[in-house]
Amino acid sequence: MTKKANQKHNAEKTVHDIRRATRRHYSAEEKIRIVLEGLRGEDSIAELCRREGLNTNVYYRWSKEFLEAGKKRLAGDTVREATSDEVKNLRAESATLKETLAELLMENRLLKKSVIGDGEDGI
């Protein structure tokens, strides 16, 4: 790659990184507000998205997710996703259980070796 092409590539990468870092993150409440505003139909979806600084594809994805979640809830599907604290606790418990299992496996191997006599009997 030539020096000029390399500089152009670096500049494009820098612009891309800045855009990614400054991308707006919407809370669940903001997403719901925007989707409900779109469903009301007072303004076109394109106008709503322009005003909110949002790509129309993102609006339609949120709208689909919103309606699917409502449909599941009305159908009686009340299973909820775990909260981040629950996930954190489950991961910690899983790590503890894995450590305990590893210790027990090591003890088991050591006991087998001591009973067999360091593997002299062919196991």
Rank of each mutant, 00 (worst) to 15 (best):
E30M: 05
E107T: 11
Q7I: 15
L48R: 11
V79M: 02
A46N: 06
R24P: 02
L111K: 06
K31Y: 09
V79C: 02
G122H: 03
C49L: 10
L67S: 03
K88G: 01
T14Q: 08
I116T: 04
L39S: 09
E103H: 14
E12C: 11
C49P: 07
V35A: 01
A75F: 00
F66R: 01
M1L: 15
T14I: 03
G38V: 05
T22K: 12
Q7C: 15
A102I: 05
K3N: 15
E42W: 09
A11E: 07
N89V: 12
R73E: 01
E99K: 15
L36R: 15
L36I: 08
R50M: 09
S27F: 11
R73A: 05
R33D: 04
T2I: 15
E107C: 06
V87K: 08
N108H: 01
W62C: 04
S63K: 15
L48F: 12
G53Y: 05
L48W: 10
H16G: 06
L105I: 02
L90P: 12
N55D: 10
T2Q: 14
V115K: 03
E81V: 07
E81M: 12
G70M: 00
L54M: 13
L39T: 07
K112C: 09
S84F: 00
D43M: 11
S84V: 11
L90T: 12
L105Q: 04
T83L: 01
K113H: 04
K113R: 10
L104P: 00
N6M: 15
G53N: 12
V79A: 02
V115A: 02
D121W: 01
E47P: 08
S44A: 06
